[in-house]
Design a binder for these strands. Structure first.
Lengths: 112, 112
DNA sequence: TGAGCAAAGTTCCAAATCGAAACTATAGGT
DNA sequence: ACCTATAGTTTCGATTTGGAACTTTGCTCA
């Protein structure tokens, strides 16, 4: 089964995951919540390739989670901003944040 | 960048996603919260292939999110149960559930 | 006894996706 | 006219996936 097939799944969790159930997508959303909005920012911040970022952004826009706004003046330059629907995903990211902070503490190199 | 590299990321969200940031993993956890505990149940319920389920379960056990308990009598039969650490991911699934229910209503075939 | 069955993987191969890096297209600046 | 910035697209080899068959071990029941 391919994961896009999950979009008609009986389970709301599966349907949600058919849109955002992927680490790069989630990281892009994290960036959006932190105020980033441009293509190259996402590429830099997430560490995903341009290829993948392009695909994820396209899907997020199609799903009406992000809104793509061309800058008035130029054609290329644009902004990706969260829609209201997208903003409602924030609690999910907060849970992931808290869980990671508690259960996956970063291992700093112990000073020798 | 490969996604296992996220496990030492400065961001707790990224670290969390390095373990559970994948749709099949999340669906397996959903099943666990609903009381499923056996390999074939996960395969059936999620729709992922045995191949993928095997890999995901292995990682969840390594991450101490699931505990693998061989059944006393047999060697093959076993149970996967959530650890306390794993149980703390429930709020994340609840958010995904609520969001999907609200924003991705299932499209029933309209009766003609 | 021994044939069949269940459970939990593993293996195989072809197809899809990814990572890395180079390339393209358009606007603006100098 | 040339250079830079931005937002992609393309290419190609490597990795991961999907799908199905196969393996292994113990259990059941005739």
């Amino acid at each position: 089964m391919k994961w896009t097939d999950l979009d008609e799944n009986w389970c709301p969790i599966a349907r949600t995951l058919s849109v955002v159930g992927d680490r790069w997508t989630m990281l892009i959303l994290r960036d959006c919540f932190q105020g980033l909005s441009r293509f190259d920012q996402f590429v830099q911040s997430t560490g995903a390739t341009r290829h993948v970022v392009a695909g994820r952004l396209k899907r997020l826009v199609e799903a009406d989670i992000l809104d793509k706004r061309p800058q008035a003046t130029g054609l290329k330059r644009c902004e990706y901003v969260l829609t209201d629907k997208g903003k409602e995903l924030e609690p999910a990211l907060r849970v992931l944040f808290d869980w990671g902070k508690k259960h996956l503490p970063i291992r700093r190199p112990t000073k020798t």
